[in-house]
Design a protein around this nucleic acid. Sequence first.
RNA 1: GGUCGAGUAGCUCAGUUGGCAGAGCACACGCCUGAAAAGCGUGGGGUCCGGGGAUCGACGCCCCGCUCGACCA
Length: 314
Amino acid sequence: MSGHDIVRVAVVGPTASGKSSVAMAAALQVAGTELVSVDSMQVYRSMDIGTAKPSASDRAAVRHHLIDLVDPDVDFAVAEFQRAYRDAVADIAARNGRALLVGGTGLYHRAVIDDLELPGEWPDIRSRLLDEVADRGAPALHARLVELDPVAASRMEPTNERRVVRALEVCEGSGRPFSSFGPGLDAYPVSPIVQIGLRWDRSVLAERIEIRVHHMMDEGLLGEVEALARRGLSRTARQALGYKELLAHLDGECSLDEAVEQVVVRTRQFAVRQLRWFGRDPRVQWIDVADDPVGEASPAVVAALSAPRSDASA
RNA sequence: GGUCGAGUAGCUCAGUUGGCAGAGCACACGCCUGAAAAGCGUGGGGUCCGGGGAUCGACGCCCCGCUCGACCA
């Protein structure tokens, strides 16, 4: 009923680690498996090449969830993702299937597997706070947060505008300390979901990223971005890697070669951030991949998917 | 062949009337609860092209080379 009897395995890892193909291979071997993408950018329709969405044939062969949820000109955030996830799990349950999560977005992944309690939104308060930040600076607001919620204040840099504003917004809006919403991301509760992480030597992964970015260009990423630019991209969608940099080039800010090089560098940095995020979670079981992710990792995923249920609560 | 300019961190470049060598980016490490492919923080890095000279002291001034660029022949 919590969904944990049908969601038992997640594949995580950095971009270009091959987690999608590993998950696809595993899904084909275990009947009834449906894939759930845990990816903050694949939720946008029409952003296909740059987000490395699964192919049409893969999507025809195995049911995929949480892809193409909204148009690229609308904002999307973790709370909506959480809601969509619950719907997807209910859907899979109704079919008596089993879900295999494939995740690259750390926060979204935690939000669903640990069912984070997300505070609400108070747009009026937020916009007032943003005005204040603009003329007084984030540290001034951080000083107020120290009064209202010292725990939350101690968890962030006084110069981090977004986090300071968000924490104050929640404190003032909800009347509760921001830090009272759940135990925090550094708590890793026991979970029935087996998490399998794909890990590569960093320099090898860097090469894969470079190849992948150039491949995306060959596939027509620039044209995709041009078409999206005409329609307009939402604030959240336009920060996707590959899109942001090519938009800058289309605006005349840099040459195409410079933009592509930036995509490579920024993607590499992103991959490192992902590795660190997931690497901190002691529940992840890592598989070191040398060159063939499907061959080296999918057997473990298949085994986890088809293992007998161990939870007595089911 | 001649003239001028350049040579400083992995890269692009600041810099000092001669007094402990800097920035941005990259890289490493850390943080993260409604923008998360976002955002924030910390750190390691140097034969200042090479050699000689003058000076208490040279990355800086003088001399000799080397490399690159532009221009003139």
